[in-house]
């Protein structure tokens, strides 16, 4: 659907994107993740034809954004960061204006406006001026704007930034609904958002792609050290440590804090091997009470920090 090859962008001497290669399939929700200033917005702006690349190409269905920007713009619905829509217009007038630019005729337009007002929850604010609206509503108007032409590709730059938790949940639902048929590319630095909505995650840092895959892929592929949380009763810390630290793959036994009915321990495991069975077998040999037993896999947050930390 979208092919990005060797995309590079310089702002003066500053390299914002450094030879990015990416292929995005149809009907997927792609999350672009990265710290501030990683190049997310720059990448989206080039895709939508707002900025021109220093070198490299972006094509969607074979149409190049440099050669035929208008062709690409017809295909893409774009919500820029913080939805900078015209503040001096009434929501209804604004949406009519956008629909006119997309060439919707009278009857089509009314149907589309009705539909979008419903989907984006705008019915109550249709006749308010945009500068009176809260950030959440502006964001929704921006979303309605982006979906006006029924675009095949929806590009959303931080669609949920500045919203309250209810609004975030609503906008995520909308995005998921759209993502079933359309290609959605969204940028964010909120990790839970990616886990909740995206089929695929691309992490960029300093203009380079540092990870690419589904959230599960990423969790699996990272150097998989994980922790086991145990609560054991009827044994002293020294005893437990002696017994469990000899298992192959356990790098440390920590904790020893009191917990209801026993003592809590955390086992750091540094290999990919599954040691859960072995730990249980060892405990079974004794007369300890195993009260809690839980594996904690590495969170996306840890992976993100690992991949994007400063050298």
């Amino acid at each position: 659907m979208i092919e990005i090859s060797d995309l590079t962008k310089y702002y003066g001497d500053l390299c914002a994107l450094d030879h990015i290669n990416l292929t995005i399939e149809k009907g997927k929700i792609l999350g672009l993740l990265g710290p501030n200033g990683a190049g997310k917005t720059t990448a989206l702006r080039i895709m939508t034809g707002f900025l021109s690349p220093s070198s490299g190409t972006v094509t969607a269905r074979g149409i190049s954004v440099v050669d035929d920007p208008l062709g690409i713009k017809k295909m893409i619905g774009y919500l820029p960061e913080s939805a900078p829509i015209y503040q001096d217009m009434i929501v209804y007038d604004y949406l009519v204006y956008i629909s006119e630019i997309h060439g919707l005729s009278g009857s089509e337009r009314m149907a589309k406006l009705q539909e979008l007002a419903g989907v984006c929850g705008l019915r109550d604010v249709m006749h308010r001026t945009l500068h009176e609206l809260s950030k959440g509503y502006k964001q929704r108007v921006g979303l309605a704007h982006a979906m006006m032409s029924d675009p095949e590709i929806l590009v959303l730059d931080e669609p949920t930034s500045g919203l309250d938790p209810n609004q975030i949940a609503e906008i995520r639902d909308i995005i998921k609904k759209i993502g079933k048929e359309k290609t959605v590319i969204l940028s964010t630095h909120i990790l839970s958002e990616v886990e909740a909505t995206c089929d695929r995650v691309v992490i960029i840092n300093r203009g380079k792609i540092v990870a690419d895959g589904s959230t599960d892929d990423l969790k699996r592929s990272s150097k998989s050290d994980y922790t086991l949380n145990l609560v054991i009763g009827g044994a002293g810390p020294a005893e437990v440590e002696e017994k469990l630290s000899s298992i192959r793959g356990v790098s440390s036994v920590g904790g020893g804090g009191p917990r209801s009915g026993g003592t809590a321990y955390t086992l750091q495991c540094d290999t990919g091997d599954d040691i859960r069975g072995e730990v249980y077998r060892r405990i079974k040999e004794t007369d300890w009470l195993l009260l809690e037993y839980m594996q904690e896999s590495k969170s996306l947050e840890n992976i993100f920090r690992e991949l994007t930390k400063e050298n």
């Binding site: 208008l70 713009k73 893409i76 820029p80 956008i98």
Partner: peptide, 14 residues
């Protein structure tokens, strides 16, 4: 200044 040019420039308008 308001950034609305980003919206205008990414609409299918020459």
């Amino acid at each position: 200044n308001t950034g609305s040019y980003e919206i205008l420039a990414t609409l299918p308008v020459r």
